[in-house]
Amino acid sequence: MPSAVETFDIRKTFGELTAVKDISIQINEGEFFGFLGPNGAGKSTLIRMLTTVLRPTSGTARVGGYDITKEPDEVRRSIGVVTQNMASDLDLTARENMDIFGKFYEVPKKVRQERVAELLERVGLSKKADELAATFSGGMRRRLDIARVLVHKPEILFLDEPTSGLDPQSRRVVWDMLQSFMKDYNMTIFLTTHYMEEAEALCTRVAIIDHGSVIAMGTPDELKSGIPGNDIVILTLSREQENARNLAAAEGYVHKAQLENGDLRCYVNNGSEDAPRLMKLATDAGAEVRAVSIQKLSLEDVFIHYTGRSIREEETKRVSMFLGAGVPAKLGR
């Protein structure tokens, strides 16, 4: 099967900082590929290179069969991009936004008009078609951002954190939309996210990226089976966490014991069976058990397994970044 996206040791440095470190990945046509990583992992930087607006420091990539540095025009014609910033023009109506994008891609008038109408319908903005985007809610603006890059039916759709900042309900709406568009438009989708649930719900394949490098890649199931055990017992401890961890790690039924943010996380085969044993062990270690929970392994755990950090830790930072709204986009990049 031909590749939709293929990168060859692609790298980007900003001064001292290497935002993307020699990433080589290959994405097939028809895949829904997820790029999962915390803030500053290099997701947007990679997308910007693949979509021709940032030149790689070294390495290259092919998108839609075209080289991003040698054939940028061809690349641009084959793709549609939803940027991390909401980018629809607020002082244009939904229809104008879409129509102008259609013109950027030189979609003939008749086709353009039909497709704009169809897309407005599908993203639920028909009634608001002739209202200024400034009057839209965040979810509506996001749907407009998506609809406007589909007027020319791209082969490959890039989405940079399309649901960040949306409420769970709007997020689900966007997920459904993406899945149905992908099927009907025959697209390959490349999506970045820092939401585990999003990657698990949508993606046929996921790459986990941290500090500019891919640290794991595969289908969500493959990634999960790459870490030992089926369940995780999470003990919230006050005092003596270190001691408890050492004791737990020495137990035969514990595949891995990790301290993460004051929580002791034990990877085991059978959570409900092992939880009581672990509680006793922690108490014996002199720790006070505040709470216990048992979880099925998720991509979140894959991330923690590889990095020792939770993606959510970073998320709190992101929230405060959003509160400082008005942060100029340039600085936010």
């Binding site: 910007r48 979509t51 021709t52 607006v53 025009d73 641009r76 014609r77 793709i79 991009v81 940027t83 910033n85 980018a87 629809s88 023009d89 994008f101 950027f104 891609y105 030189e106 951002d145 100029p328 986009a329 340039k330 936010g332 990049r333």
Partner: peptide, 16 residues
């Protein structure tokens, strides 16, 4: 556009 961060969305289209 650059200040608002919407320039990149346009640069990613085929406009020359």
């Amino acid at each position: 556009d650059r200040f608002l961060g919407v320039d990149e969305a346009i640069l990613m289209t085929p406009v020359t």
